[in-house]
Design a protein around this nucleic acid. Structure first.
Lengths: 324, 324
DNA sequence: CTGTTAGCGCATTCAC
DNA sequence: GTGAATGCGCTAACAG
């Protein structure tokens, strides 16, 4: 509540001196510095960040846009992004788009209005053009938004191949891939690679597509039940963690033995995949590293520290489990 | 990038007029208004929110402090808080304290520095005194921070009793309660009520205490294994969702039949409790309502809309499952 | 070494 | 109806 002017008055000096003393910029005699600090303490002075922001034209806030915070992958991602940003002196503003592209757009607008210094987006409902209009720092996770916007993601192709290899090792013959990913996102490559390798080896591969922007458990569960009705003869399933867990649950309920009769392989290997019994076999993304790389790439842009590569692909590995 | 002054120049009017025209405050002739709008569009003018913030001494940002975003309860809570805040025109800044009270303190400081208009805290590592120093709006979830700070939470006592009733109905004789909650938090009441009712009915109740600020699955799992080693004779377990899920997993691995030989009841009933087979029996908190009430209480304070009650306790119910 | 001054961009007086 | 002037709180450049 107390302003810098009041502190200056109390200490009997000018505002500039107070500013320098408290910020450690420029020279202030030890003596007057003491006086100023005493005055500041007495008045319980706290600098008003809003005024600072206006002057510096920055806020130290980074916007993080995700489709759904209550999804294990995104909650873990945001957690680690927040922690990394904090380490580097930034704050995190979040936005759930829940499939509403208007909300995504509004966050982009906040960039223009200087509310945030940069954006990390993992929600992909808008057209690429909207992003390309922007001139301020943006980093994209899992989607190519053009040459000026760095893309960070994991090696989805390798993930798909790792899964395919497991299916082959288990001699599966009729496998289902459940695609639940936004169009235009590199995450789709996991299915392409998966199906390609299996087909090359004479395995029959079917596919089902889930609404990509629905993330609640009910929906996954219903979809799994429907899947078993329409594909009673499959002996393998590959999909995102949650759909895989739903399939596992329905299989157990139906008395289908996993993995003897049916292999189930997930993608992401987030916490819930370890909670079930048997533990889900799944391709693991290194979310922590993903967060770290995304943040550092963005801040390289924000602070113009150095040039950043346009495409950064992180390694994946297979989390062993009991379902394949 | 274009400022209001440039727009004024382009339109050949004064800055005040531009401000009034674009904000709809005060009178502007339809004619000049047109001119101004054209100029604004031409220059691609966007008001600088930082300047506005300084003038109004507000940011429209609410800080949300939680121990760990990557915990199903908190990720769901933050998701719904964010959505509700968005509906009301506010943005959400998040902070993972991950058990570090310094981080909690820093967020409190941001209140003083006017970076956020208010705070919703569900992380309770700091002493009450630190909160009571604050004069700006704060709402607390699950912990009493003194008369001036509203407390929102669910009816933990009732939850504990609902669980106890199920244990009694299943004729359990040696029950274990796993406490994993911060000290001084009303969430502890669930265990107090649970144990009280069971003891009154002649049931033996033991208890174990987990580090309250550890939230990763590994820790839960290890704790569960240790629990079965040291308490091989129990026939009932009551704890938070994640510890309960870990116990269920270990029990299944050990070939203990649930619920025939062992009843397991969780608290929260978040998504992962539905993913396992059998589904976890658990006390359900209405997170959505909790978020809505917290946000509205805070904004009543921020906008001084009306007086708010100091204590708001929400109902709970039992989520049926197959583990009790 | 330190006080004064001039903005940062906007919103709101208050004369005209 | 409208323009000019003032201030939000702070920082940095500039005299002194």
């Amino acid at each position: 509540m107390a302003s810098i002017r009041e502190v200056a008055q109390e200490a009997g000096v000018g505002v500039g001196t107070v500013s320098r003393a408290l910020n450690g910029s420029g020279y202030v005699s030890p003596e007057t510095k003491k006086k100023i600090e005493k005055a500041a303490k007495k008045l319980n002075y706290t600098p008003n960040e809003l005024a600072r922001n206006l002057y510096h034209n920055r806020t130290g806030i980074v916007g993080v846009v995700v489709p759904d915070l209550d999804h294990p992958f995104f909650s873990a991602l945001v957690k680690h992004i927040e922690m990394e940003l904090y380490e580097q002196g930034y704050k995190t503003m979040i936005c759930n788009t829940v499939g509403i592209s208007r909300r995504e757009q509004e966050y982009l607008d906040m960039l223009e209005r200087n509310m945030v210094d940069g954006i990390i987006t993992a929600s992909h409902g808008l057209e690429v053009e909207e992003y390309q209009k922007q001139t301020k720092p943006i980093v994209s996770i899992d989607r190519d938004l053009g040459a000026r916007i760095p893309l960070i993601g994991c090696d989805h192709e390798k993930g798909g191949e790792l899964a395919a290899r497991l299916m082959l090792a288990a001699r599966r013959k009729k496998v289902l891939a459940i695609l639940g990913i936004a169009p235009k996102v590199i995450a789709n490559d996991r299915y392409t690679a998966f199906m390609k390798m299996l087909k090359e080896n004479g395995v029959t591969v079917k596919q089902e597509v889930m609404e990509w922007n629905i993330f609640n458990w009910e929906a996954y569960y219903k979809f799994a039940e429907e899947t078993f009705r329409s594909h009673p003869d499959i002996d393998g399933i590959f999909s995102g963690d949650l759909a895989a867990l739903a399939c596992l649950n329905v299989a157990q309920r139906r008395g289908i033995r996993v993995p003897e009769e049916l292999s189930i392989i997930g993608f992401d290997a987030m916490a819930p995949s370890s909670m079930v019994y048997p533990q889900l076999t799944a391709v693991r993304q290194n979310v922590e590293l993903l967060a770290e790389v995304s943040v550092n790439t963005l801040l390289d842009l924000v602070e113009q520290r150095k040039n950043v590569p346009h495409r950064l692909i992180l390694d994946v590995e297979m989390q062993p489990g009991g379902t394949a």
